[in-house]
Design a protein around this nucleic acid. Structure first.
Lengths: 160, 160
DNA sequence: GCGATATGGTAACACTTGTTACTATTATGT
DNA sequence: ACATAATAGTAACAAGTGTTACCATATCGC
C-alpha cells in the first residue's frame, strides 16, 4: 500500500506512515471502535473487554469462563478481571463448574440481559450507519479482505 | 455486516459478535499491529507510540512536538511521555522552539536515524507479506474502503 | 494408585495509561 | 496595555494492564 518505488537495490526507501497499511488499519479500527465504545462506555460504563464478554454471553445461555475469554480474545487474567468487574456490577453471575471444579460457568443476570438487550440495537445501528458509507460490493469485499489479511497475519504471528 | 434479519419491527435481533464489523476490524487491526510490533518491540524495545513518532520524524528533518503528536494520533500527554522515553534512549533530541517558547522542536539523533533506517525495511517487508494475501483489486478496494469508513466514523465521533 | 505435569483461575507487584490540575508562554479583546 | 483566554507541555495521582508466581483441581505416565 505504501507508494514506495519497488526497491531494486539498496537505495533509501522513502517511508510514508500515512500510506502504511497496518497504520491506516490501526487508525481506522480505533476510530470505529470509538464510535461503538461511545455506546457502552459513556452510556453504560462498560469497558471494552466487559462488553465483549457480554456480547458473547448474550447469544448463549451459559458459557465457561475459559471459552468466553478465548472467544473475546482475552488472556486468562484479562478474562478474570473483566468478569470480576461484571460481577461487581451484577451483570453476570459465576458458579463453579461441577464437572471441572477449576473452572467457572458464567451467565448473564437478569440485569445483564436487560442491559445487553438495550445495547445491541444501539451498536447495530452504529454499524449500519458506518456501513452506509460503502456500496454492497465494498461491504462484501471488506469481508473477504478481512478474512484473508487475518489469515496471513496469524501466520506471521506464531512463526515470528 | 451482521447477518441479522432487517428489523421490521421490535422482534429480538440476533446478535453475532463475530459478524460485527467493528469487532472484526478491531481483531484484524490487533493481529496486523502485532505482526508489525514484533519488529520494533521485540527487537528494538520501542513502544507503539514511540515508533509512530520516529516514523513521522524519519521523513522530516525536524518537527514540532505538537505536530508529531497530532500526526501520530496521540494526545499531548502520550506525546510527552513517548518523547521522554525516546530521549532517554537517545533516539531523539528536543530543543525549545525559539519562535514559540512553549513548544519543542524534535529531531532524530544520529542513533535515532540509524535505528529508523534499520526498522523501515523490516516493517515494509511485513506489509508486503501481508498484502501478498490480496489481489491488486482488493488492495485498491481496501484503500477506498478505509477512507470511506474513516470519514463516516469521524462524523459519528464528534457529534456523539 | 500416585508422583509429575497441565489447566483454570487469582494475588501481588511493577509498569503503563488516563485524568486532572498546574506552569509557562503566547494570542485576543477592548 | 492589560486582563482574559488559549496553547504547549508536564507533574501527580488514580486506574488499568502485563507479568510472575502461586493455589486448587484435573490429567497423564507408568
Amino acid at each position: 500500500m505504501n507508494n514506495n518505488n519497488k526497491p531494486t537495490g539498496a537505495e533509501k526507501v522513502p517511508f510514508d506512515l500515512s500510506r502504511f497499511m497496518p497504520y491506516q488499519l490501526a487508525v481506522l479500527a480505533d476510530d470505529v471502535s470509538d464510535t461503538i465504545a461511545q455506546v457502552y462506555v459513556d452510556r453504560f460504563d462498560l469497558g471494552r473487554n466487559e462488553w465483549r464478554i457480554m456480547a458473547w454471553l448474550g447469544s448463549a445461555r451459559t458459557m465457561s469462563a475459559k471459552d468466553l475469554g478465548r472467544r473475546a480474545g482475552l488472556d486468562k487474567m484479562q478474562t478474570s478481571r473483566a468478569l470480576a468487574r461484571l460481577q461487581d456490577k451484577d451483570l453476570v453471575s459465576l458458579k463453579r463448574d461441577a464437572q471441572d471444579r477449576r473452572g467457572n460457568i458464567v451467565q448473564l443476570t437478569r440485569a445483564g440481559r436487560t442491559l445487553y438487550d438495550k445495547i445491541v440495537p444501539l451498536v447495530l445501528a452504529r454499524e449500519d450507519y458506518l456501513l452506509a458509507a460503502l456500496t454492497h460490493q465494498e461491504i462484501a469485499a471488506l469481508d473477504t479482505i478481512i478474512g484473508k489479511l487475518r489469515q496471513q497475519a496469524i501466520g506471521l504471528k506464531t512463526r515470528g
